[in-house]
């Protein structure tokens, strides 16, 4: 691991054709989700009474057709993708944040504190957290805040474990001892010396987390426990489409395919990043 190491990681990723393609695809989906509504001026909430559940037609006003209420499927899919990505990014940020903090503290403190914190992690890991999230939505009602919190809270466990392991091995390195000997406090040691040195695996792992969280969010939204009307995520759109699939399959196909391609691209990108990182670590050591 060296200072000039960040560049070779991206170079290596660029050399991986599948990874590069996935990154391009992701950029494409994201830009369509962001810019699509500008190109296609249909209002996602606007109801077109003259076009209830019309089939897709590229020359018409509704490229992907309309749903049962006459809302434009293309614009709604863009909206849904944007919401799904946004939820995933925020929830990933939450879980990465909690995980880094917990893992760094446990790994740096070591000894009994570490043992206790890891035991807690083990118990939490044994819990079927998804059911717990469902349970929480039952108790506290449904809503986006809870959704973020719940997904974020579920995702941090592996990140904490990763960071803790990295921190433990860093802790034995002399430059950490040197900083302590200088008089640097725990906050400074963790912030200045530990975190920058665990950043690379954290980034890789976070990339691998994003598709899981996209899936999780769409799953909850599909069940009606996640994003609520009138907002829509890909999960709620798939749920709507599934209900209408006999009469109007396009309402299902657009968001369903979008979700599938999104997950595929995220997975492939994560794998490629992990391979690139593993290759670099192997060269570095």
């Amino acid at each position: 691991m060296n200072g000039a190491g960040a560049l070779p990681l991206w170079r290596r990723l660029g050399a991986d054709r599948a990874g590069a393609a996935a990154a391009l695809f992701l950029a494409l989906i994201a830009s369509i989700a962001l810019l699509g509504p500008l190109v296609n001026p249909n209002d996602p909430a606007a109801i077109d009474w003259h076009a209830i559940a019309v089939a897709p037609r590229l020359e018409g006003a509704h490229w992907f057709g309309t749903d049962r209420l006459g809302r434009d499927v293309f614009v709604r899919t863009c909206d849904g993708a944007r919401v799904s990505l946004l939820v995933a990014l925020v929830a990933t940020a939450i879980s990465v944040g909690i995980g880094i903090l917990y893992g760094a503290v446990a790994g740096y403190a070591g000894g009994r504190v570490d043992e206790l914190m890891m035991r807690l992690l083990e118990v939490l890991d044994g819990l079927p957290l998804l059911f717990f999230v469902i349970f929480l939505t039952v108790i506290f009602g449904r809503g986006e805040t809870l959704l973020f919190a719940a997904i974020g809270a579920v995702g941090w466990l592996s990140m904490a474990r990763l960071v803790r392991g990295q921190t433990l091995s860093l802790r034995r390195r002399e430059f950490i001892e040197a900083a302590v000997a200088l008089g640097a406090g725990p906050a400074r040691v963790i912030g200045v010396h530990v975190l920058p040195n665990v950043l690379a695996p954290v980034i890789v792992y976070a990339t691998l987390t994003v598709p899981q969280i996209v899936l999780f969010e769409s799953f909850l939204s599909f069940l009606g426990l996640g994003v609520q009307e009138p907002a829509a995520s890909l999960g709620t759109l798939v749920a709507e489409g599934a209900a209408e699939m006999q009469a109007a399959p396009w309402i299902l196909l657009a968001p369903g395919l979008c979700l599938g391609v999104l997950l595929l691209a995220l997975n492939v990108l994560g794998d490629a990043l992990r391979d690139a990182f593993a290759a670099r670590a192997a060269v570095g050591s």
Binding site: F222, G241, P249, L252, G260, V261, L263
Partner: peptide, 22 residues
């Protein structure tokens, strides 16, 4: 396999239903 991982059950089942059922 990567494709299989990317398609959630709640997308796949309606699609399967569309093809094999409808």
């Amino acid at each position: 396999a990567a494709l299989g991982l990317a398609v959630p059950a709640f997308v796949l089942l309606p699609l399967l239903g569309l093809v094999f059922g409808v």
